[in-house]
Amino acid sequence: MTDMTGLEIRHLTSDIVDVSDITVLPGRPIALVGPSGSGKSSLLRAIVDLDRNAGDVRLNGIRRDDLTAPEWRRRVIYIPAEPGWWGDLVGDHLNETDSTQLRDALGLSHIKHSQPIEQLSTGERQRLALALGLARHPTALLLDEPTAALDEESRTQVESLLDPMIAAGLVLIMATHDPEQARRLGLERLEIVAGRIGPDQTGDNT
């Protein structure tokens, strides 16, 4: 047990990734970079325990293995690049936490609960998933290319929503292909190559 705050990946292995000693402090977000297929999404899936994996992962000193998977996933929230939907309608995915403000902030106020998910554009779905995820008050947030399908205006909306959250101490890992975005949000770069931490990774290079 440590008093370490933030997300601590002491080691983590799955079929695809094998990493160790990654620490993400509150307010010190990380940009996961690397070519397509390098294992960025697989690493995020492994952290949130969605794929079979082994390792020692802790959040604010609490070991992942000491929590049930649903408990862990209520604290560590992962939003895939192409979010999935288990119901047909927008309303099927709204839960007890109110996401109205977040949806408004992301330019989704026109979307009705009765609307089929299928009718939304890719970008709208991506923003809706983000709004619903943020509404669940994550302790740690894992974003996979959150603005890949967005136009510039929506991307700005997402960034200006995340910025104050980071400043307020959000633990954030974001997989991104966009170095400009990483710079704007002040993300530290962590390169993943073939499921491992990249060779040119020498600590802080903000």
């Binding site: 949130v48 969605l50 998977a69 649903p70 996933r73 209520r74 979010p83 999935g84 998933a129 669940r136």
Partner: peptide, 22 residues
């Protein structure tokens, strides 16, 4: 066929029984 949707449900902290119900 619906793996992504079921996983999305699991990601909200649903148990496997909740997510598999449909």
């Amino acid at each position: 066929a619906r793996r992504r949707g079921i996983e999305a449900h699991l990601l909200t902290g649903a148990t496997r029984w909740e997510a598999m119900k449909p």
